[in-house]
Computed example of a mutant assay.
Amino acid sequence: MVKENTELGWGRGYIADLANNNIRRFVDLNYSGNNWRTIFNHVRFTQWDRYYRVIAAANIAVDRIGDVPDPALTGELKAAYTGEAVFIRNLAYFFMVRQFGDVAYYTEPYFAKPLKRAPMADVLRGCIADMKEYYKGMPWTYDDPFYVGIRGMRGAAIALMMEMNLWLAGFDIPNSQLYYNDVIELANEARNENGGAYQLLPIERYIEIFKGRSSENLFGIPQNRNYGERFGWSDFFDQVKYDPLNPNTASIPYMSYTGDFMRALYPEGEADQRLQLWFNPATAYNANRTFQMKKFLVTADPNSIDFNDRNDATQCVYRYPDIF
């Protein structure tokens, strides 16, 4: 699906390795042009300590929130904060399961005992049960638009449980129908009980979605120049950017979708707004340095010659269409 533009010689061979699932070479670090940041990120790919820091903090929050004596922290707020902490720890476990398979699983606060890895399916089943205990205390959305789609909301927790069920259905085949039934039940809840908190935006407003905090966003990691937020190199857009107005070679994409893959999604000659709005139609089927994906280019400063400074998009983890 993804083709690496090796002709550029920019030392991003890891793109091809990831596309070909060559994980051993990906962590080998023997790419030309590596700098300290690239090396650090590759080493980090093999480590799970940051996930467990998140999980440890979440476990403590779940344990302590209920006992906070401040009367301003109502029972409703305590349930919302607790649900959000549970959502974050289960999201961390889900990321780890997809990356490492079997992982050590615990939910107790201040835990310091040695643990063996638990089977992946057991971890996911534990996460679903954990999330189901707390998610209904989470709000469907927030009155303050600043928090919409970037704080834990009930729709995001439902999307996470749906995805974990689908993952289990693929690995626990004898019980797959049970997981599928749970997915349908959760989807119906999200669609029918959200009270108008979520909606599918028309494609003409797609920039609002990737800007973040829209009624279609369920959960994402925000990047907003107004609040001093910036991903740097961690966004996908950095790999596919192409700016013909920028004379700097860094404006050329490091990878592109293959022509066959693009034709399968958007057959040539057929009108499709996604092709027109998200790509440069003139080069969309060219698997080379002229490929241009505009889908995640949310303009922050249209006058900046640095494409990274011009991009202001949220990294979307879950969106309302995922429920469908």
Rank of each mutant, 00 (worst) to 15 (best):
A300E: 05
A19G: 12
D243V: 00
E4T: 02
L297T: 02
L124M: 07
A300M: 09
L160P: 08
D243G: 08
R151E: 04
G13L: 11
A271S: 15
D312N: 15
G269Q: 04
L201V: 04
L218P: 05
I39R: 10
G220V: 00
K116T: 00
A187L: 06
D63F: 00
I209N: 14
Y52P: 15
R230Y: 10
D49S: 14
R191M: 09
V123E: 05
K3S: 13
F261P: 13
A190K: 12
E189Q: 11
A264G: 14
G269R: 01
R289W: 01
A16E: 12
W36N: 02
N165C: 05
L124Y: 02
F279K: 07
I252H: 15
R230Q: 01
G152A: 13
A250V: 01
A264N: 14
N248L: 02
I207V: 03
D312H: 05
L73Y: 04
F291T: 07
K294C: 03
P302N: 14
A56L: 00
Y285M: 06
Y110A: 10
A56D: 14
R50F: 06
W140M: 11
R98N: 14
A118Q: 07
R12P: 05
T46C: 10
E4H: 11
N21P: 01
Y106F: 14
F111K: 13
Y110I: 01
A79F: 07
P71F: 05
R44K: 06
R25L: 03
R263D: 04
G75M: 09
Q99N: 12
L265A: 09
I252F: 12
A19E: 04
I207R: 15
D312G: 10
N59L: 03
P202H: 09
N165S: 07
N165F: 02
P119G: 09
D28F: 06
R125T: 02
V123L: 07
R89P: 01
M162R: 08
I158D: 15
L166K: 08
G196T: 03
L178F: 12
Y180I: 05
E208K: 10
I39D: 02
L168D: 12
Y31F: 07
E208N: 09
L168I: 01
D312A: 09
Y142Q: 11
L201Y: 05
V97D: 14
N30S: 12
P114N: 02
G269W: 00
I15H: 14
Y52S: 07
Y52K: 04
D130T: 02
A80S: 15
S251H: 03
F100D: 04
A250R: 06
Q315A: 14
L178P: 03
I15P: 14
R213N: 05
M164K: 03
V43Y: 08
I305F: 11
F279R: 10
E133C: 13
Y52Q: 04
A57Y: 05
L275Q: 06
P222Q: 13
Y179P: 11
A58K: 00
N35I: 04
P222C: 11
K295I: 03
W10D: 15
T290H: 12
N90M: 00
C316G: 12
V123G: 13
K116L: 06
H42S: 05
W48T: 04
I65H: 15
R263Q: 14
G149Q: 05
T249F: 12
N188F: 09
F261C: 07
